[in-house]
Simulated scan of single mutants.
Amino acid sequence: MTETTRGLTDSKVLVADTTPLHTLTDVVDLVGNASYQGVAWVAVPADLLPADFFRLRTGFAGEVMQKFVNYRVGLAVVGDISAHTQESTALADLVRESNAGTQIWFLPDLATLEGRLAR
């Protein structure tokens, strides 16, 4: 996986930008690496996540989010997920509730992440 660490504001952000996160092992590797590096947030492009992540009934999103919470590393899913939220009111509710919190966000781009971290 190609990962770049960016100093957005005062928080260290790891941008996972090439390897899809198809399995929980992929996620554990990423979040473990981020935790080891002292990274506060991991930004994952939405297109690197499998369709099952956006189908809440599969449980994959919950497992992924739980790993980030357990390691105390923030997760920002970055990109347009409107096609998924239009298909699922449960997902739209999850996105809205997550974005009101401090640990997991669904954002349109890295600039928005930078703005949220600057607050």
Rank of each mutant, 00 (worst) to 15 (best):
Y36Q: 15
Q37C: 05
G38R: 13
A40M: 11
V42L: 11
V42P: 00
V42C: 10
V42F: 04
A43W: 09
A43C: 08
V44P: 11
V44W: 05
V44M: 07
P45Q: 10
P45C: 08
A46K: 13
A46G: 09
D47A: 14
D47Q: 14
D47L: 12
D47M: 09
L48C: 07
L49H: 05
L49T: 07
P50R: 00
P50E: 10
D52A: 13
F53L: 03
F53V: 00
F53N: 02
F54Y: 15
R55S: 04
L56M: 06
R57W: 04
T58D: 04
T58H: 11
G59D: 08
G59T: 07
F60T: 03
F60L: 14
A61T: 10
A61H: 02
G62R: 06
G62E: 11
G62N: 09
E63V: 02
V64E: 04
V64N: 08
M65A: 10
M65R: 15
K67M: 13
F68G: 03
F68Y: 15
F68D: 06
V69W: 06
V69G: 01
N70Q: 15
Y71L: 07
Y71S: 10
Y71P: 00
G74S: 08
G74K: 11
L75H: 05
L75F: 05
A76Y: 05
A76P: 12
V77Y: 02
V77S: 12
V77M: 07
V78D: 04
V78M: 12
G79L: 01
G79S: 05
G79A: 01
D80T: 01
D80E: 04
D80V: 01
I81M: 07
I81W: 00
I81Y: 00
I81V: 14
S82R: 11
S82Q: 14
H84P: 00
H84T: 01
T85K: 04
T85G: 01
E87H: 09
E87W: 01
S88L: 05
T89L: 12
T89N: 10
T89F: 02
A90V: 06
A90D: 15
A90P: 02
A90L: 13
L91F: 08
L91Y: 01
A92H: 07
A92D: 10
L94S: 02
L94G: 03
L94C: 01
L94T: 05
V95L: 11
R96E: 09
E97R: 13
E97L: 14
E97H: 09
E97M: 07
S98G: 06
S98D: 06
S98I: 04
N99A: 08
A100S: 14
G101S: 09
G101R: 14
Q103M: 13
Q103H: 05
I104L: 13
W105G: 03
W105H: 15
W105P: 09
F106Q: 08
L107S: 05
L107Y: 11
L107F: 11
P108M: 06
P108R: 07
D109T: 13
D109H: 12
D109R: 12
D109V: 12
A111T: 13
A111C: 00
